[in-house]
Amino acid sequence: MRKLSGRRCSRASCTSAAIKTLTYIYSDSTAVLGPLSTYAEPHNYDLCAVHSQRLTVPVGWNVIKEEVIDHNSGPTEEDLMAIADAVREVANTDLNSKSMQPELGRRGHLRVLPSN
């Protein structure tokens, strides 16, 4: 296995850049189309966008298409503000609820609170 960069589509006479890797699992009659593999494998096929969309498999075979999940997209500014507001609300609630409980005694970092 050697690492390749800028791999081309495996289809004959196609010069487009590969974006997906097709793997056949013959024992399960399954074709798996997923993200471009890190390494070129001898029994896998690298496909461009056009050929990966036009993929057909033998009758009776299953196709599993694994989509790429973009983990770099992150939360929006609106999401972050909602989280910050929720944290502030919980913090304020905790402070208010603690100040309502009278202390019966204190010794160092320990305190005695009445049981409810």
Score class of each variant (00 low, 15 high):
M1K: 08
R2V: 10
R2E: 14
K3R: 15
L4D: 01
S5M: 11
S5T: 13
S5Q: 12
R8N: 07
R11H: 08
A12V: 10
A12Y: 06
A12I: 10
C14L: 04
I19F: 03
K20R: 15
T21G: 01
L22T: 02
T23S: 11
Y24E: 14
I25V: 14
Y26L: 09
S27A: 12
D28H: 13
S29Y: 08
T30Y: 01
V32I: 13
G34Y: 01
P35V: 12
P35G: 04
L36P: 04
S37K: 09
T38S: 13
T38C: 02
T38W: 07
Y39G: 03
A40T: 09
E41I: 05
P42I: 06
H43L: 11
V50G: 00
Q53G: 09
R54A: 12
L55A: 03
T56I: 13
V57F: 07
P58N: 05
W61H: 05
V63M: 06
E67K: 15
I69L: 11
D70R: 11
S73I: 15
P75Y: 07
E78W: 03
D79L: 03
D79A: 04
D79C: 05
A84Q: 11
D85C: 01
R88C: 05
V90L: 09
V90A: 10
N92Y: 11
D94L: 14
N96R: 14
N96F: 09
N96L: 13
K98I: 11
M100N: 13
E103T: 06
G105F: 08
R106D: 00
R107K: 08
H109C: 04
L110S: 10
L110T: 10
R111F: 05
R111G: 00
V112D: 00
L113F: 04
L113M: 07
P114G: 05
N116W: 12
